[in-house]
Design a protein around this nucleic acid. Sequence first.
RNA 1: UGGGGCGUGGCCAAGUGGUAAGGCGCGGGUCUUUGGCUCCCGUAUUCGAAGGUUCGAAUCCUUCCGCCCCAACCA
Length: 557
Amino acid sequence: MTPAAPPSDFIREIVRGDQEAGRHGGRVHTRFPPEPNGYLHIGHAKSICLNFGVAADFGGWCNLRLDDTNPTKEDVEYVEAIMADVRWLGFDWHERMYFASDYFERLYEYAELLVREGKAYVDSLSADEIRAHRGTLTEPGRPSPYRDRPVEESLDLFRRMRAGEFPDGTHVLRAKIDMASPNINMRDPTLYRIRHAHHHRTGTAWCIYPTYDYAHPISDALEGITHSICTLEFEDHRPLYDWVIASTRPPATPQQIEFARLNLNYTVMSKRKLLALVEQRLVHGWDDPRMPTIAGLRRRGFTPESIRDFCLRIGVAKKENVVDIALLEHTLREDLNRRAPRAMAVLRPLKVVIENYPEGRVETVMAVNNPEDPGAGTREVPFSRELYIEQDDFMEEPAKKFFRLSPGAEVRLRYAYVITCTGVVKNEAGTITELQCTYDPESLSGETAARRVKGTLHWVSAAHAVAAEVRLYDRLFLSEDPEAGGRDPLSDLNPASLVRLPESRLEPSLAGVAAGTHYQFERQGYFCADPDTRAGAPVFNRAVTLKDAWARLSKRG
RNA sequence: UGGGGCGUGGCCAAGUGGUAAGGCGCGGGUCUUUGGCUCCCGUAUUCGAAGGUUCGAAUCCUUCCGCCCCAACCA
């Protein structure tokens, strides 16, 4: 990884300025506040790195807070996944894990205060009527007929809302701000709504739940948050955030700062759409390796280091952005190039028989585990008369600049001998089933190996190889912007986003691989053993290919 | 047509009045028993546009243009 310059962005500038000016008593305290209504994705990783990163840079802390104010969408499954993902990314909230639901009682008390002070009222209009009264972008709203209902009446109704006397939708608590505000968020926003629903933490203790706009600023204040970092779409809510703080006078005055969320091309990033993929079984769950979720990226084979590096490199600003997925792939390659041991694996096997190699003979050749890391050592790989090479590494009629095997051509088998193709065996259908070759006994690697050959192929000894399933992943969507023009991204799925190769053959050292282990399969890419791996039956996911100059060349023609 | 934001190369992104960093991508070369890696070179006479201020403007002013967000009892 690049020895990164210390991150600097407009948020850190603000925080630095605040700290130098002694605001918030010189403290810096942030929070990462996901709603537990889905799995975290790479966009959240940007926010996590920002919030934990800012706290670390300025000697402060970052809380993990689950923003669970909507019981109908939230679930403990998500809470646990969020915790696991944040930890896996390498961040630690220590003992500071909170839930907005922890504050329900305090929130309620503040709400009564607002009612008593005439800053909030119970509205008994229906949702449709409230909408009709709200006005439009260009016309002011009209006050609800209940807006000036006596404080005592509102207080009584609010208490009875809490007591469960009313069905869903019959009343809401609204802030009394300004129905004519050009900022629609200030037109008496809803603070509490009735929801007779089971909450994943408070069960049935409550049947009224605070809205985000009300709960968030107070939750921040109660935790002593100094800088409440959120995404651009909340910019319009900042006056409301400040109004809630000013009106309820909690023990701290956090300040909201907005940045542009991450977008990646060839994928979607909203939890709603990711949920649809999962629910409609278009992927195999939230941790499907094609998903941009943290869990998916992890299963795919991404490392926390590569994701953190990615987040560092994309920067933080207020401009809407669409980052090229190639940058994410680059940070993974860069990380794994340094760290991943190499191995030989034949994904689509083509049998090779070396006709002048003695039957039954087996020799072991020495292979380097990682040329980027001399400390990684070497290993032995068995070589014999019958091998497998990659189907792609043979062309009966070689294209221009094809440096691999073809009839009459010679090629080096990595760490072993130079072979020449002398014959091609086909079945009735005309499919090539086997290659006949001869080897040059004088060409063993490391000995009389000064011979220069244009191509080097990876291979595996047929009798020693480990059978494995390899899963090749490609982008989930065909288009760079799957949602372009308001189209449904689910109609843009890449039918080839997953290709299973159940007949792959690995070098024997991979036999007992543990799930989660990374390898570079030479000449092919970085792979990670999937949790589906069983003893003697490895399953590997391709996280990312190696850069492939030949692929580019041959595409050009 | 109201309000809030944003416009620097294909994609990110520095730059805060002194004469356009860096990364990815792309192209070329080097090296090579991974067509990987490394290393080298190239890739914005110009900062959405037009005026203006200034010795000097991406940075200041004016006007215009474009894009995004907001009318959930979602977050």
